[in-house]
Amino acid sequence: MNPPLLHVNNLEVVYHHTVQVLKGLSLSVPEGAIVALLGSNGAGKTTTLKAISGLLPLEDGEIVDGQIAFRGASIAGNLPHRIAQDGLFQVMEGRRIFEHLTVEENLEAATYARKGGVDLGEALRKVFAYFPRLRERRKQLGGYLSGGEQQMLAIGRALVAGPSLLLLDEPSLGLSPLLVQEIFRIIEAINRDEKVSILLVEQNARMALGIASHAYIMENGKVVLDGPAARLREDRDVQEFYLGSRGGAQASYRNVKHYRRRKRWLS
């Protein structure tokens, strides 16, 4: 079997030399796959992605142990712009649109992730084919876009960057249900048509397990459960804790609320 495109082994991360957040996390993303990384708030999902993309030191975080291999080569400690240029691109939590740049300029900024340079016109056409809304807004400042449009732009930048591995941090955050469907459809399309492998961090476990082939569930800085997405969808614990339903395929809002209430009583 080929080695996986990304392999993270026993990763330990500490912030400010004091707070240990990752405690021996391991995961792999095979070439061509969509892998989901799930877990509750504060589990360390974003920290994991930042460790991989090299952004950790900018927040005074440090990898104190473990390995990160991308295409078989260690990238731990590399500078973020190099990692991006090597074809590993992160769409950060909260979209991080350049507010004072136009939509087009936001996309142009992502051409810096292309080592060999890129035909901007062609890259823009591709982005606008996926997101026609952005074409209409191309001259508008990023700061004035709606949340949904900003998420489109954030993914659009990834399309311009053309990575072989894409890290997505909560792409569905704050979007309407309809838009969530749309974004997930596009994530699948990018994976299939652009041949981009994806590591997807999500709160929306149902949607994520719907498009992923494999999933990891983390708690407290470690992976506590992993397996084929189809199997996790059927797992009783996963259903109870992450899909907000018990046995049935349909999770109603009522059930979720019931679960929350129960949890509050228990705690």
Partner: peptide, 24 residues
């Protein structure tokens, strides 16, 4: 200019610019 875009992007959000391949 393209460099101008990189400079303004860095001014807006250093971390995002760095992750975008811009050598800040």
């Amino acid at each position: 200019t393209r460099t101008g875009v990189a400079m303004r992007a860095t001014a807006d959000d250093q971390m995002a610019a760095f992750g975008m391949g811009i050598d800040i």
